[in-house]
Nucleic acid binder design. Structure first.
Lengths: 212, 212
DNA sequence: CTTGCTTCCAAACGTATGTTTGAAACGTAT
DNA sequence: ATACGTTTCAAACATACGTTTGGAAGCAAG
């Protein structure tokens, strides 16, 4: 497995740069030079830039989705009744805690997710759906039990809205932190924002469906 | 003012392509060839690609913000009491109706906005804030009156969350429409989604603030 | 018809990108 | 020590990009 580090150094650096500048705007040269490895290393170890991007996501999402699946197992085994608070609470705690070593890691993850999702063409979106769609659907089933009065289609969209709120906010965290600091003189971490997000999402998801 | 069309043909084409593929992924050659104008026309008429992007936004946002300001004037003149529904209703109707000629135009606009906002570096975000920040703040004031129990800071974040839900959802409309079609056998327009968005946003914005 | 100004156009420029190459360096097992 | 598979490296490759250029085309006023 070669010099202990090259692959991981590439992943570490790429992760940060992708989140900072976006995929297209981050060159392999920027990654490799900052990582202190040769330019050709990316193509040697990953095959292409596209494959590197996927690898970065995999390193993030696999632990997350495994942990989420486990939590859902627990929930089902214990027979805990589903409520929006418990379901969303689990997700948010996991998102913030899957990589406890680095508190900024969660922010990076959401920035990446935002980048991926806003890639209009959507290679990445397909990839994510293909690899992590199962857990996502399980989550949706539990949510449906938590708000049985919301029709499935309506709930589907509300989950999308929630995703949007989370990813969009955390992916723009830096600028927003700046605003928050000047306007309210407060520093904010991803955890702070998540705490504020939860009531908002719960309120939105269980809102009354208009008669129409 | 030259051949009637070059500038507008560039703007029309750029608008669509930017929304479809993103800014970095859309080359000037793609724009000019599809628009049927010479490659050099962009730099001649706009100065640079960056300036073209700003021009595309301006064409969208200026009518919108003018109309919004007018609506807020009305509201204040009539002395209508502020409620989340009225405020958000105004915004959503305007976003969908500022360019009534083309129903798909709203979707394009939100895709553009999503692209702009997720540009991590944020040149565009700054530009938008600088040019349209005033109207945005007025809007926020009215919202605050509508939910006086929500602390200003909390409201600020909830507005961000709402922005995320809107932009993110509509910017990914195409893929989501695909899912909706297969899973629920339903076609959706931007207007449909907006109708579903409103209760979600209202529910989120006026949710109880946890004691903490 | 000439002049002056704007707009258009084909071609080229310089640069940056992802990728490939072939040899050197390395580590390991024979 | 030698041979072998893996990994690193500097260099080059091909391509795509945004931008610039110099002149042609168009057009209005003198």
């Amino acid at each position: 497995m070669a010099q202990p580090g090259t692959v991981d150094r590439i992943l570490d650096t790429a992760e940060v740069l992708f989140a900072q500048k976006g995929f297209a705007e981050t060159s392999l040269r920027a990654i490799t030079s900052k990582a202190g490895v040769n330019l050709a290393a990316v193509n040697y170890h990953f095959g292409s830039k596209e494959a590197l991007i996927q690898a970065v996501f995999e390193r993030f999402l696999t632990p997350f989705s495994v942990a989420l699946a486990a939590k859902l197992d627990e929930l089902e085994a214990a027979g805990t009744p589903d409520t929006p608070d418990t379901i969303l609470g689990i997700v948010s705690r996991l998102a913030l805690g899957t990589h406890p070593q680095d508190p900024q890691r969660a922010a990076i993850f959401f920035r990446l997710a935002g980048q991926a999702y806003s890639q209009p063409q959507g290679h990445l979106r397909q990839y994510l759906n293909r690899h992590y769609g199962d857990v996502f659907e399980r989550l949706q089933v539990h949510l449906q039990r938590a708000v049985p009065d919301v029709p499935p289609m309506e709930l589907f969209w509300r989950v999308q809205f929630s995703l949007g709120a989370v990813i969009f906010t955390l992916s723009g965290l830096e600028s927003l932190q700046g605003i928050s600091k000047t306007d309210f003189n407060l520093d904010l971490t991803a955890a702070d924002i998540t705490r504020r997000l939860l009531p908002f999402l719960v309120g939105g998801i269980q809102a009354d469906v208009p008669a129409q």
